[in-house]
């Protein structure tokens, strides 16, 4: 069974890259353009993993992660956030909000797939 992934990013080009990389790796990809949209997509379906940007208009990634952790239906769903900051504080905030892991931008498609594989487990 192919794992299904929700990607949340306000940048069309990043959405495109992640979509290409992940669908080439055999995953099913659903896209959302910001935190609000992400929660709406979560409302409508189940995902095996969520990949989200933090810095987004409308609803940022941290808020979305906090909100989704309140939803019993999505307990334990891994959440990977994308960040350009190597800043430990941001990571700590995201972790406190309930994120599982992160990927530092810029990333190449392979490292994205690697991280997704890592977090999904075998």
């Amino acid at each position: 069974m192919t794992a299904s992934i929700l990607t949340v990013d306000d940048s069309a080009s990043i959405r495109l890259t992640t979509r290409v990389a992940l669908s080439n790796a055999g995953y099913t990809v659903t896209e959302a353009v910001d935190g609000k949209d992400g929660l709406a997509k979560l409302d409508a379906g189940q995902f095996d993993i969520i990949v989200t940007d933090l810095n987004m208009p409308n609803m940022d990634g941290l808020t979305m992660i906090r909100e989704l952790r309140k939803l019993p239906a999505h307990t334990g769903v891994p959440v990977i956030f994308l960040t350009t900051e190597s800043d430990a504080e941001i990571k700590q905030q995201a972790k406190a909000a309930g994120a599982t892991g992160w990927l530092t931008k810029p990333f190449d498609p392979e490292s994205l797939v690697k991280i997704v594989r890592k977090v999904l487990g075998r």
Binding site: G76, P78, A99, K118, V119, L120, G121, R122
Partner: peptide
Amino acid sequence: AMANGTNPLGLLDE
């Protein structure tokens, strides 16, 4: 950790 999406079995596998 599990509620936040970390799978310990995955870590052991790694």
